[in-house]
Design a protein around this nucleic acid. Sequence first.
DNA 1: GGGAAGGCCGCGC
DNA 2: CGCGCGGCCTTCC
Length: 132
Amino acid sequence: MVRKKSKRKDAAARVASERTSATDAERILATIKRIPRGRVSTYGDVADAAGLPRRARLVGTVLRQTTARVPWQRVINASGRISFPLGSEAYSRQRKRLEGEGVVFAGGRIDLKHYGWPPRAEQLDEFLWKPR
DNA sequence: GGGAAGGCCGCGC
DNA sequence: CGCGCGGCCTTCC
């Protein structure tokens, strides 16, 4: 008889059935690990940087599920806000961790022009110039 | 700034 | 198998 490929799915089958492959999650997590302390990135930017354009939600999903030790607090939404309900335990936990590394909240939001990662053209000067 | 609409898609029920 | 719900985003009004 034709030999079965056994338990593990072969590459083709994997591509056809696993949208969120382990590699997608791994790429997302690896990307998040690169965000420097004291800076933040958005779900959408992380997705782009991970090579998964328009998959911002997946970043949230992966972050929600993972147990990996990544700086999850550095991922916020495109409005510069924490994506947890204001007043929730999760919200304050994330906010404290960020403030703990120097990120400033003004009116409940973080100014991506200053703390965003990667630095945009406008803040490049400041970024390169600013001493530690 | 704020809200609606459309896009995206994994996951649990 | 269909459906609602996400740590979301961009566009348009």
